[in-house]
């Protein structure tokens, strides 16, 4: 499988590690809401179809990539940047 890292280009899956669901949002650092905290840790959708997920390019530039992938066909639909530089948009 190939993931296109926004900074490095298309790379073999072996350079990446799966880091979990890309649809969840962590509550603010100051939040004291237990339900939100628990939901962030434990609640997950498990779609049979397109799934937004986060991969870590640890064997490359060490940035994180937001990937939309179909869990039935494994086809990768989009790969987008994450991290401080993603606001600047495209590749370095």
């Amino acid at each position: 499988m190939i993931i296109t890292c926004p900074w490095c280009g298309p790379r073999d899956l072996r350079e990446f590690t799966y880091r979990g669901d890309g649809t969840i949002t962590r509550p603010d650092i100051d939040s004291e809401n237990v339900d939100l905290a628990a939901s962030f840790v434990f609640d997950r959708e498990n779609p049979a179809g397109d799934h937004l997920e986060i991969w870590h390019h640890g064997g490359g530039c060490r940035s994180h990539v937001l990937v939309k992938r179909n869990t039935l066909t494994h086809k990768i639909i989009t790969c987008g940047p994450l991290g401080p530089f993603s606001k600047n948009g495209a590749k370095a």
């Binding site: 900074w7 490359g60 530039c61 940035s63 590749k91 370095a92």
Partner: peptide, 21 residues
């Protein structure tokens, strides 16, 4: 110059290894 271009001269080589790195 950007991208993965890594310029070098006699004394220095710069290798871009990631965004801002």
């Amino acid at each position: 110059v950007g991208g993965s271009k890594s310029p070098a001269n006699k004394d220095y080589t710069i290798l871009p290894v990631g965004p801002g790195r």
